[in-house]
Simulated scan of single mutants.
Amino acid sequence: MWEGGICIIETSVEKLNGIAHKLELHGYKWTKQRTMTLEVLLEKDSGYLTAEEIFMRIKSKYPQIGLSTVYRTLGLLNELHIVRKVTFNDKSTRFGLRDDDSDHLPPHLICKACGLIEKVNEDWLSELELHLRKEFGFQVFDYQLDFIGTYAECNENTCKKPNPSAP
């Protein structure tokens, strides 16, 4: 984010503090379980994870946590618009932190070979929204756009992505 010609980089700690404040404003406590769930989602390149994947990452550091606690935490964070709950074509429900700069869910690249899901910069979709409004009188409120295919590395069997055994 740029402010007055200076680049402001929001650290994980600042992001967690902002989320803690939002929880408190809505009458919720800042708990260890909520902190750990958000830390997993804030990890570099965590992308969209299933509740089970989040649970396994937390459980390695905090064995007392239960899967139902992770589900309840994700449900609350989704309700408060802190995380997004997304169901992709493989019917898996995944969670990722919301980008405060956008009202829309960003488009995704979904690799059929390795299962990697990457967000795509959505700036170019603003032009399409404007065109739809001008040409058809259609106001876009939201959209979900996924591009399903394979990366060149996956086609060449040199995939270095996180889940090379995905269907």
Rank of each mutant, 00 (worst) to 15 (best):
residue 91 K to I: 07
residue 38 L to Y: 03
residue 52 E to Y: 03
residue 102 S to T: 15
residue 82 I to R: 10
residue 45 D to G: 11
residue 102 S to P: 13
residue 44 K to N: 15
residue 16 L to G: 09
residue 71 Y to I: 11
residue 106 P to L: 03
residue 74 L to K: 12
residue 36 M to T: 06
residue 74 L to M: 11
residue 62 Y to P: 06
residue 58 I to H: 09
residue 36 M to N: 14
residue 46 S to H: 13
residue 37 T to R: 01
residue 53 E to D: 11
residue 99 D to Q: 08
residue 92 S to Y: 00
residue 83 V to Y: 11
residue 47 G to W: 02
residue 49 L to M: 08
residue 112 K to H: 01
residue 31 T to Y: 00
residue 86 V to C: 10
residue 32 K to W: 04
residue 98 R to K: 13
residue 73 T to S: 13
residue 10 E to P: 06
residue 65 I to F: 06
residue 49 L to V: 05
residue 9 I to C: 13
residue 104 H to E: 13
residue 53 E to T: 05
residue 37 T to G: 04
residue 104 H to T: 09
residue 26 H to P: 01
residue 10 E to G: 05
residue 23 L to P: 04
residue 72 R to S: 14
residue 61 K to P: 05
residue 33 Q to P: 05
residue 16 L to T: 07
residue 104 H to S: 12
residue 99 D to K: 12
residue 75 G to E: 11
residue 10 E to K: 13
residue 23 L to I: 01
residue 52 E to V: 00
residue 112 K to Y: 00
residue 20 A to Y: 06
residue 93 T to S: 14
residue 95 F to S: 08
residue 32 K to V: 15
residue 107 P to Y: 00
residue 95 F to W: 14
residue 23 L to D: 01
residue 50 T to Q: 01
residue 118 E to S: 03
residue 31 T to I: 00
residue 57 R to F: 04
residue 45 D to M: 10
residue 104 H to W: 15
residue 67 L to G: 03
residue 39 E to H: 06
residue 70 V to L: 03
residue 111 C to A: 02
residue 104 H to K: 12
residue 10 E to V: 13
residue 102 S to G: 11
residue 34 R to K: 11
residue 55 F to L: 03
residue 66 G to D: 07
residue 70 V to A: 10
residue 107 P to C: 03
residue 38 L to S: 08
residue 57 R to Q: 10
residue 73 T to W: 08
residue 79 E to R: 12
residue 83 V to C: 15
residue 79 E to W: 05
residue 66 G to V: 01
residue 116 L to P: 00
residue 98 R to V: 14
residue 41 L to Y: 09
residue 100 D to I: 08
residue 108 H to T: 05
residue 118 E to R: 04
residue 48 Y to P: 02
residue 47 G to V: 02
residue 19 I to Y: 02
residue 106 P to E: 09
residue 25 L to E: 14
residue 115 G to P: 07
residue 45 D to H: 14
residue 69 T to K: 05
residue 49 L to H: 10
residue 44 K to A: 13
residue 79 E to I: 02
residue 98 R to L: 12
residue 111 C to Q: 00
residue 56 M to W: 06
residue 13 V to A: 14
residue 61 K to I: 13
residue 65 I to S: 04
residue 35 T to S: 09
residue 91 K to P: 02
residue 48 Y to I: 01
residue 90 D to W: 01
residue 21 H to K: 06
residue 59 K to S: 06
residue 17 N to E: 14
residue 59 K to T: 03
residue 12 S to Q: 10
residue 57 R to T: 06
residue 101 D to I: 12
residue 72 R to H: 14
residue 100 D to F: 07
residue 62 Y to Q: 08
residue 17 N to T: 05
residue 85 K to W: 06
residue 50 T to M: 01
residue 24 E to S: 08
residue 49 L to F: 07
residue 64 Q to H: 05
residue 70 V to R: 08
residue 79 E to C: 06
residue 112 K to C: 01
residue 87 T to C: 09
residue 45 D to C: 07
residue 49 L to Y: 08
residue 105 L to C: 10
residue 36 M to P: 02
residue 70 V to C: 09
residue 96 G to Y: 03
residue 53 E to W: 02
residue 59 K to H: 11
residue 14 E to S: 11
residue 28 Y to R: 03
residue 103 D to C: 05
residue 23 L to G: 09
residue 43 E to G: 13
residue 84 R to S: 15
residue 66 G to E: 09
residue 17 N to V: 05
residue 94 R to G: 14
residue 26 H to M: 08
residue 77 L to S: 07
residue 15 K to W: 10
residue 30 W to K: 09
residue 71 Y to S: 08
